[in-house]
Nucleic acid binder design. Structure first.
Length: 569
DNA sequence: GCCGTTTTCGGCCCGACTGTTTTCAGTCG
């Protein structure tokens, strides 16, 4: 699929045009096209073949032609032209805070700045300051921006961001000046990684609130502390992360929360709609003329546009507004719809809990059932179970199920897909189980696609675990053709896993949405190895919501009876 | 470059802050 390639090209064209000084809406159009391509679930080549490029909102005749040109020739004239005078090394500098396209344009044209080294030099030798519109302070701010750019942290995994935000919020709740409080930004939208951590508070005495915030025990450095905004570095065991707190008046809280939650694209769409209706939306409220007509809570804001409240996870301008306008927004899955966890490890293999402890925890979480899926014999590193030990485990599960009334343990395995595509247990064992989760754990570059396809031939396999094999902060994933896996899952009626472990979140939202569109069932499993791991379910549900999955798309939203009766997923 | 139930031309989200300036441009979120 060339979707991402094209997205990158258009994004760079946008950047280059901006630096060239071609201010205006072309730049916005190219960047919008880039984002649309980035999000697109369908193969752009297929759409082009069917002559339907211009049916995509945001793609007009100009960009359609450029897409066709690239698909045909592997080149794009406009890209070459836009990049002809602007070196790539200059484009990257747009990421530096306090340094925008206009200044970069000047520095490039007047001083011949081509890269970071050049930029540092012209700051040091004082030539940047002499440019029209620049001064000492601006140069100083750009210098600070460069410092941050150079030590730029990678994005923050959602798991870590949520942990930090919850600690800070728990602390802030004790501040008597604060009346309402919420996480905002991409964290509230549950993106798999977030760039920064935003919190919104409503309150009366901004300066006092910010002072209280900066006294949070985890704060290692205060970056800014005014009356409406505070910003601090908070250190965790892993690293130092920036947390921003904004204070608004209580009457504006809803509009501010809507605004600071984003996404930017979603907000722009709403504001355009408001404008057409003769309203104006800002972070202070919805206005008709000078009269404020909404702002206290988010629901009000959406209502002025005849929209129901759109869940934060959906706010990406991927068609959610249009569907909501037609009166049927996606009825995405809720955490409370989850009836059980279909991927748990016990002490039998490399987990830390006994079967009884797992059952107790599952009961506390309100689950109906929980699937014990320990590793199979070839997974030596994880104390994989031999057939004999699996039989022993089956026996213990049967006994516990006799005894425990409020929770059902499901007999399962996370069986290795071996190098030749065979499964690590014979069918005589697999047929004794309620659930068979098949997974690649070795040979990541060896015919992974064929091996998974072969595993799906086995009638006892229920679910393919972590289908792409990626680890968000560590590795890319297997060499696997997920399109083929999706096709086969559809035809063989197998479920695919959404592994909810924070570093996996695999399948990702892109393929989850594709799977849903093809009618493939998804199983959300935490892959928990210890008690804390059970909590990962919320991230799985968050990503599922981002992919527009509904209750009916998810295997573990079925009741125990339904699940057991479902021979064919 | 895109788009249209006021428009096929003339619009395109909104506001704060900062620093450079005498009324505004650049940058950010």
């Amino acid at each position: 699929m060339k979707n991402k390639e094209l997205a990158a090209l258009f994004s760079r064209i946008g950047d280059a045009l901006e630096i060239k000084g071609e201010m205006g809406f072309k730049i916005i159009a190219y960047r919008r096209a880039a984002r649309i391509l980035e999000d697109l679930t369908d193969d752009i080549e297929k759409i082009a073949r069917e002559n339907k490029l211009q049916e995509i909102p945001g793609i007009g005749s100009g960009i359609a032609k450029k897409i066709e040109e690239y698909l045909k020739t592997g080149q794009m004239e406009k890209y070459k032209e836009a990049l002809s005078e602007i070196p790539e090394s200059l484009l990257n500098l747009l990421e530096i805070q306090n340094l925008g396209a206009r200044t970069l344009h000047l520095a490039h044209n007047e001083l011949g700045v081509k890269n970071l080294e050049d930029l540092k030099r012209v700051i040091k030798n004082g030539s940047l300051v002499k440019l029209y519109g620049l001064g000492e302070k601006k140069a100083e701010n750009i210098k600070k921006g460069i410092e941050i750019y150079e030590q730029a942290q990678e994005r923050i995994p959602i798991f870590e961001a949520v942990n930090i935000v919850e600690e800070v919020i728990e602390y802030l709740q004790k501040c008597s000046y604060i009346s309402r409080l919420s996480p905002a930004g991409s964290l509230r939208r549950m993106k798999e990684t977030v760039g920064d951590i935003d919190i919104l508070a409503a309150g009366t005495n901004g300066a006092q609130i910010i002072r209280y915030f900066t006294q949070f025990p985890g704060v290692s450095r205060v970056l800014a502390a005014g009356e409406t905004k505070g910003s601090a570095m908070i250190s965790t065991q892993r690293s130092e992360r920036q947390v921003d707190l904004r204070i608004v008046d209580e009457s504006e809280y809803g509009a501010a929360l809507q605004y600071f939650t984003g996404s930017k694209a979603h907000n722009i769409k709403l504001r355009s709609m408001a404008r057409e209706k003769g309203f104006k939306i800002s972070e202070y409220g919805v206005f008709r003329g000078d009269k404020k007509i909404a702002g206290y809570d988010e629901e009000e804001v959406y209502k002025t546009l005849n929209l129901p409240l759109i869940p934060p996870e959906l706010r990406e301008d991927r068609g959610e507004i249009e569907l909501a306008l037609q009166g049927h927004p996606p009825q995405v899955v809720n955490y409370s719809d989850i009836k059980g966890d279909l991927h748990i490890h016990s002490r039998y293999s490399d987990g830390s809990l006994s079967l009884r402890e797992i059952a107790e925890l599952a009961k506390e979480l309100g689950y109906e059932y929980i699937a014990i899926c320990d590793h199979s014999q070839s997974a030596k590193y994880a104390y994989g179970l031999t057939s004999e030990r699996l039989k022993q485990q089956i026996k213990e599960i049967d006994q516990l199920n006799q005894e425990l009334k409020e929770i059902k343990l499901l007999k399962g395995t996370e069986v290795d897909i071996l190098q030749d595509g065979q499964l690590d247990f014979p069918n005589e064992i697999l047929k004794e189980l309620d659930i068979v989760v098949a997974a690649i754990h070795s040979g990541f570059k060896k015919n992974v696609t064929e091996r998974i396809l072969r595993a799906m031939d086995n009638p006892f396999v229920t679910i393919i675990a972590h289908p792409s094999g990626r680890l968000i902060s560590k590795r890319e994933g297997y060499d696997v053709d997920l399109e083929k896996i999706l096709q086969e899952a559809k035809s063989k009626q197998k479920a695919l896993e959404l592994n909810a472990y924070y570093d996996r979140l695999d399948l990702n939202e892109f393929y989850l949405k594709k799977a849903k569109e093809q009618g493939i069932k998804i199983s959300i499993g935490t892959d928990a190895h210890y008690a804390g791991g059970f909590q990962m379910m919320r991230f799985g549900v968050g990503i599922a919501r981002r992919a527009w999955l509904e209750k009916k798309d998810i295997l573990n939203c079925l009741s125990h009876n339904q699940l057991i009766r479902t021979k064919n997923i």
